[in-house]
């Protein structure tokens, strides 16, 4: 069921939602959250597709906010709201409203979104590409418990981590971090077993990849050792090496699909470690809506190092190993954690 509304208001959209639901005969709905997607005409299709897939796991009302401030002064001065209400079939398990905000209205998106939020249910805001610097104080971000950005879609992915760390508000999270969960859980499981003390670590991945940087920072923060960042051809992260007295614990994935885990004194084994689709990442994000403290600690741990990384990253064009996110050696760790406390205020 699809209803097109031109030059409309939130109240009429709400009526449209109820009408659409009545028409397909499902007056009661068990939607668990409102997902607000802030995007442009170009990325809206892919983002909505991923959100609909994720809504199979988390039935939700999806509000796609597409801002069209207009090019000419005349367009910019006017204001118009067009909406497309979709319930059932193509809208996944919930309902979808695509909101096109023209002219001046593009600066007041929150006034349209607020009346359309589900009562008493959490709100998640997702910027698939361009995200505001401080998501937590953005007028739309303020409505949400959970704010999802994606550093990897930014012009300067690694540099944007600095922005995320500076502008962090509890409830922020980034898809570059979500992409790491399978790596992190496999590494954590490897360290559940007996092993010698870890003295150093290295993370290998393609250049300009925020996830690789975050993984290095996480390891440095958790293990308190120096983590070397090496550049490879990818795809994505290609290897993690933890140096111990008995040899290296190494998780190596060269094809973005199947990894090999080698642990000293044990046979090498294969581990499925597939790069995941956006829909799976969003589904994981929606599973927990409380602040992710580990993400905060990781992204803020690196602020200082990343500043230098961003610069050196721009300098190296291809291939050559950079001394990128060289995280603090144990001796300097105290200073670093002191710094962390200072940045989080």
């Amino acid at each position: 069921m699809k209803i097109d509304l031109t030059d409309t208001t939130s109240a009429r959209i709400n009526t449209g939602l109820i009408d659409a639901r009545r028409a397909i005969g499902t007056p009661a709905v068990g939607m668990v959250l409102t997902l607000v997607i802030v995007t442009d005409e170009g990325s809206a299709y892919d983002a909505l597709k991923a959100a609909h897939e994720a809504s199979r796991e988390h039935p939700s009302r999806i509000l796609a906010v597409i801002k069209r401030p207009g090019r000419s002064p005349r367009e910019r001065a006017g204001a118009r709201l067009d909406a497309e209400v979709v319930v059932g079939d193509e809208a996944g398990t919930g309902e979808t409203v695509v909101l096109r905000m023209h002219g001046e209205l593009a600066n007041h998106a929150e006034s349209v979104v607020l009346p359309l939020l589900l009562p008493d249910a959490p709100v998640v805001c997702w910027w698939p590409d361009q995200a505001p610097e401080k998501a937590g104080t953005d007028p739309l971000g303020r409505l949400a418990q959970r704010r999802i950005t994606d550093a990897s879609s930014a012009e300067d992915p690694v540099g944007s981590l600095v922005v995320r760390a500076d502008g962090y508000t509890p409830g922020d999270t980034d898809l570059a971090w979500t992409r790491l969960t399978p790596w992190r859980s496999m590494l954590a499981a490897a360290l559940d077993q007996k092993h010698s003390t870890i003295t150093a670590a290295a993370v290998e991945g393609e250049a300009y990849n925020a996830s690789t940087e975050l993984l290095a920072l996480w390891l440095a923060d958790r293990l308190g050792v120096e983590v070397e960042r090496k550049v490879s051809d990818g795809p994505g992260i290609t290897a993690v090496r933890l140096v111990t007295g008995d040899g290296d614990i190494c998780l190596d994935r060269s094809d973005g699909r199947l990894a090999e885990l080698s642990v000293p004194g044990q046979p090498d084994r294969h581990v499925a470690l597939k790069r995941r689709e956006t829909a799976e990442l969003i589904a994981e994000e929606l599973r927990r809506l409380d602040p992710d403290d580990i993400y905060r600690a990781t992204v803020q741990y690196g602020v200082k190092h990343l500043v230098s990384t961003a610069r050196s990253g721009k300098g190296t064009d291809d291939g050559g190993p950079t001394a990128a996110a060289r995280a603090t050696p144990p001796a300097a760790k105290k200073a670093a954690s002191g710094g962390k406390a200072a940045t989080s205020k």
């Binding site: 969960t181 992190r184 859980s185 590494l187 954590a188 360290l191 559940d192 390891l219 958790r222 293990l223 308190g224 994981e284 927990r288 992710d292 403290d293 580990i294």
Partner: peptide, 10 residues
């Protein structure tokens, strides 16, 4: 060291 009760994604 890689596990933390707060890290509920793992």
């Amino acid at each position: 060291p890689l596990r933390d009760p707060l890290d509920r994604r793992l």
